[in-house]
Every structure is written in structure tokens, then in C-alpha cells.
């Protein structure tokens, strides 16, 4: 693979798949050497959008990616109107989810591609099945997932054990524990729903968790 013209950053992408598969396990996914001014510029603009909601910077990203997304859309969706929908949907997500971009995980182009691919996947299903599905972002999460290692597996077994004791809690504490851990509500959302101060939520949660812990510590055989 070394014989391809030069070792410039661009060429690393034109390796045949076979070389990739061989090295897939020990690939260095850290950011490519930033000798490429384009990559640097895009990253700088993206940071401006993420941190300052910079409209001019976004305007540049829009102008840069628009024709690329349209071309991809035409190829996949085979219709000018749908291709422009893909541009709009993708760039809207780039704008509204900019704060989820993590420069350590990859280039701006890869991030925009990810959003576009996810959106296109859902649009294709809409065209083919007439379903208002939105599964793309579940399949390819936009922010990094932590792989479920042994520790989280055990953690979840533990959670399951804990949940068995939920019914033994007083109602007020059970509501809070269920709300936070099963419905994934924030403490503020729970406070609003139950019409109590957030401090009350915090103390109910603490009391509830302590009680659950005590259930586990009691030998039950």
C-alpha cells in the first residue's frame, strides 16, 4: 500500500479494504495529522458553531457541504426534491446538534457524513415503507457509546436485583427512584411533575436508594 504516490493524509483513504481489515484492530483513530488546511479550517469553523452559535461559520459549512450532501442524496434517493430534503435535514441537525460534535472522535466531514447517513437511512425507509420511522440515530449514535463492558453488565444485573425491591419502598420514594432510573427523567422534571421542590426529590431519592441498599445487605436466605 506504500507504493501509492505519496504518504499524504488523503491517500490513507484509498487503501484497499483488505489492508483495513488486517489492521482494523490496531488502527490509530486519533485525528489525522493536521497538515491539511481544509481539515483544520472545517474543525475551527465547527468549534465556532458549537461554542458560539456562530452564524457566519455555519454559513460556510453549509456552503461547503451542501453540494456534497445533494450529490449523495441524488445517488441514494434518486430524486432532486428528496436530495434537497436530505440537505435541509442534515444541515439542520449539524446546526441544532453542533454541541455534540467531539473533535477528538473524528473529522467534521465524518461527523456530517454520520448525520447525513442516519437521516438518509430514515428517509429511504419512509420512501420504501411509507413509515415515519426515525431509527438512524439509534443505530449509529451521534455521541459516543461506552461499550457495555463486564463492569456495566454486572452493574445492570445489580440494577435488576435492586428493581425487585422497588415495591417495598414507600410510594413517595418509589416514584422518584422509578422516575429517575426507569423513565430517565431529570430531577427537575420530576419535581415539576410531582409539584414538589427539587430538594425534596433529592432527599427522597437518597432515602430510597439507602433503603434499597439496606434490602440488599440483609441476607434473605
Amino acid at each position: 500500500m506504500e507504493n501509492i504516490q505519496s504518504q499524504s493524509y488523503q491517500n490513507r483513504y484509498y487503501k484497499p479494504i483488505s489492508s483495513l481489515t488486517k489492521s482494523a484492530m490496531d488502527i490509530d483513530i486519533s485525528a489525522p495529522s493536521n497538515s491539511e488546511p481544509q481539515v483544520e479550517l472545517l474543525a475551527a469553523l465547527m468549534l465556532k458553531v458549537a461554542n458560539q452559535r456562530d452564524r457566519a461559520a455555519f454559513g460556510y459549512l453549509f456552503t461547503y457541504f451542501m453540494p456534497k450532501i445533494r450529490a449523495f442524496g441524488l445517488q441514494r434517493l434518486n430524486q432532486q426534491g428528496l436530495a434537497m430534503d436530505l440537505v435541509q435535514e442534515t444541515m439542520t441537525s449539524v446546526w441544532t446538534k453542533a454541541h455534540l460534535y467531539n473533535a477528538d472522535k473524528g473529522s467534521v466531514a465524518t461527523w456530517v457524513f454520520t448525520i447525513m447517513r442516519n437521516q438518509c437511512f430514515d428517509m429511504l425507509r419512509r420512501v420504501q415503507h411509507n413509515k415515519e420511522d426515525a431509527f438512524g440515530d439509534d443505530i449509529w449514535p451521534l455521541c459516543d457509546t461506552v461499550a457495555m463492558n463486564q463492569e456495566t453488565q454486572i452493574d445492570h444485573k445489580f440494577t435488576a436485583k435492586l428493581l425487585k425491591h422497588l415495591d417495598d419502598l414507600p410510594l413517595a420514594q418509589r416514584q422518584v427512584v422509578q422516575g429517575i432510573y426507569m423513565q430517565e427523567l431529570t430531577q427537575q422534571e420530576l419535581a415539576d411533575a410531582l409539584e414538589v421542590p427539587i430538594g425534596t426529590i433529592k432527599s427522597r431519592l437518597r432515602l430510597g436508594l439507602e433503603k434499597l441498599k439496606s434490602f440488599l445487605e440483609t441476607p434473605n436466605d
Binding site: L20, A24, I29, F65, F72, G106, T110, F113
Partner: peptide, 20 residues
């Protein structure tokens, strides 16, 4: 599977370049 997750991240970079 951390290994396949890393491989997909790498392939995504490649796919992005191919597409764009």
C-alpha cells in the same frame, strides 16, 4: 464489542471520504 466498534468508526471515516 470494542474491536468491531473501533473498526466501524474507521470504516465510517472511509465511507465519509468516499461519499464526499
Amino acid at each position: 464489542c470494542e474491536a468491531c466498534k473501533t473498526a466501524v468508526a474507521q470504516y465510517t471515516q472511509e465511507a465519509a471520504d468516499l461519499a464526499f
